[in-house]
Design a protein around this nucleic acid. Sequence first.
RNA 1: AGGCGCGUAGCUCAGGGGUAGAGCACUUCCUUGACACGGAAGGGGUCAGCAGUUCAAAGCUGCUCGUGCCUACCA
Length: 886
Amino acid sequence: MSPSPPSGEARFSKGYEPADVERRWRDFWEEGRSFSPDASLLSGAEPFSIVIPPPNITGNLHMGHALNLTLQDILCRHFRQMGRQVLWVPGEDHAGIATQNVVERRLAQEGKTRHDLGREEFLARVWSWKEEYGNNIRRQIKALGASVDWSRERFTLDEGLSRAVRRVFVRLYNEGLIYRGRYIINWCHRCHTALADDEVEFAPQKTFLWHIRYPLEDGSGALVIATTRPETLLGDSAVAVHPEDGRYARLIGSRVRLPLVDRLIPVIGDSYVDREFGTGALKVTPCHDFNDWNLGQKHGLDFIQILDDEGRTNANAGPFAGLSGEEARRRVVAALEERGLLKKVEDYENNVGHCYRCRSLVEPLVSEQWFVAVRALAARAREAVPAQTRIFPESWGKTYYAWLDNIRDWCISRQIWWGHRIPAWTCGGCGKLLVLEEAPQRCPDCGHASLAQEEDVLDTWFSSALWPFSTLGWPDETPELARFYPTSVLVTGFDILFFWVARMMMLGLHFMDRAPFRHVYLHALVRDAKGRKMSKSEGNAIDPLEMIQKYGTDSLRFTLAAFAAMGRDIRLSEERIEGYRHFMNKIWNASRFSLLNLEASPPDPVDFAAVPGLHHRWILHRLEELKETQAAALPEYRFNDAAQALYVFFWSDFCDWYLECVKPDMRAGEPLRTQARFVLWTVLREAMILLHPFIPFLTSEIWSLLPGAGRDLSSEAFPPLRPACRDAARAGRMAMIQEVIAAARTIRAELGIAPSLRLAAMIRPRDEAARAVLEEQRPLILALARLESLDFDPGSVPRFSAAHMACGNEIIVVLAGAVDQAAEILRLGRELAKLDKERALLQGKLANPGYERKAPPEVVRRDRARVEELLKAEERLKALRDRFAD
RNA sequence: AGGCGCGUAGCUCAGGGGUAGAGCACUUCCUUGACACGGAAGGGGUCAGCAGUUCAAAGCUGCUCGUGCCUACCA
């Protein structure tokens, strides 16, 4: 069955028009549930499974998604052809903070905040956003032609996945791997929530380094510290110096008087302090700096919090209480200056953290949060690479290890509403903390019924971390889980190696006892023409949908595949997409030509290994090589190699040569025509199969028009290998014919002879073997070089003629008299210079004493033969030139 | 500060020990019954620089210069 086509001429227009074709095939694939492995048949063929990196529901797909989906789709379609049972699970991510921000921004336009609506109504608003944008994203995944199994689509907040999240949370809690406590964390004042370490992005900022005097307790002077955050001195509880710093060592154990606050704080020694930086003395504010927090723990210092979760000073700030951070800084600096405690102020540039979702300033804050103790999980995730999971390209392994080796506990609670609410309740009676999968009715200890659930939700990445098994049905023991876990490969950008990949590794290993993927393929980031990361906010994004509209999905897909060389970023250029649209058109027209020369039913079979035509044997040989390249490249994620091989095969070999060779056959009688039809049909047919994973729409359309095509192409198997068609010797003979034809064309072009003019030509073969081949292929040479006649072994070369060498064969074109002889002499001179240069290079190489001894024999033989050939060619060309010069 | 990567044709990029490739752009000719989104023939490159390894280096090694990214506790 095929989609209902428009009939007749419209179906095979002169140029390929993707829009209509794509729409029809999209509908067809969707209706047919073509890509849904039957659950009752989950056995037999070896499985191949991928879980989609779920796009956020915050907006539209960008070019990174287009790349990601294209590469996965190529793999899925390829392995389907290879007979594997393929499952590609689609889905979307609820993207906690990001989505909440988007919806809050929309509310702000109505002049409301989420607090005006209340939790329940706000969540209803987010859900309706999700419906709208979830559909949008689904449409776009379909637009790209992704062969996902929509019947198994999941959403990180759907009922099943929520159950998985609660199960995981409770288990980890009971195992002591999740805990709650007051710690210093990253706090985004704008999003009003905690962030994990990797959700903070650092950016340089111009600021000042304030040098402040802290008077010694005994009044004998002052210790000068340098800081970028003078206002936090209100919460200082020590000054730290390096224990071996000659300037300060004697002060360790003494005390200094904290300016403005007048509190006595100790001077401590710690080798953490960098003697070179600033004054070599460091103020320690355990509640407002990560390092100071560590020092505070280590040295048992006081923890004095002076800023609240709004970033405003609290009662601990004494006279400076109730101010914004900025205002507090201004006033503290002014007060210090007034008292003569500000020694100097330097310009300074430092790195400050920003929220990866809203870009606003992130500051350390001490608060009560939930954490995952990751050390043990991380160790296991580290061990699993490469034992269970191979990373491509391999070099990313180092980065993966480094991150896991230095990992800190993962802060998983977020003070927002959109997400998985933490399944923990506090009993209003006895205060007991209950961590349970389902809401309890009453406290098991005291029987009290007033139980308050945690307000916080989980980090979005917590639910994403379960994706490879939660989407397959876990915690239920589903057939899908048994069959498709671990998945075959995760295809994703390296930018979420830590956020996502490492965490899936940790939780997958912990809960499934197996790493979630056999391979992780990290592809490039798509950047703009200037090499910047494409992003909506920067306004430099190339919209994939716009490209699809302009050039067609297949053009975009093929471009992305051709660009997807491992370990390198992609700078997408629209010109390149346009270039590959031309390729699509070429495929379309070559098929159009083929179909015009085929009949309604498949041609009668011919024994491939016995077809007489050299061009047939050659193209069949090249086809075998192409199959080999593709079958080798795709399992190694060398998409660009496969794409390039397809391009060269189809355009250079098939269109430029084979089709031209076949044209005379089609005008000839039997059996030539039948043979040509069968080989042409076979090659085109198999080329469509090989191209299909890259450009599914165009190939499906052509397939549906091919005689005897049968079912839809997406369920067609990889073409059978034909070892008997591999014939490098014959392919080499064809190469010689091609060169001879090119030689005649070169003469024609360079001497400006009209293409319409049929020329008489002569040929002096290199040797007897070459003579046999050339004589046999005389009709082909006549046709493609547009010759009137081709004589072998002319007794004498006519006075008006031009010559060119091809693989040691001398091609002589007889000119019609009125030809510029001087031009030919010049041309021969250029040709000679070229040959001479090459020969000199080779002879130099051969003259090297070690060469013959150490180089592989076939290389030496080849070079020798080439020199011979060059010498002969030069000799002949010189003779001709001399004669013309007379 | 460490780690990773990149510097190849005018531009965007493949390739990778044994005669330099693609797309776009450029020159000339061609509407030859698939395709002008095309065909044919060309021009254009000391493959960043230097030194090594090798019979042979654009490729491997080291250093230098330029450039990009990631990680990190420089107040």
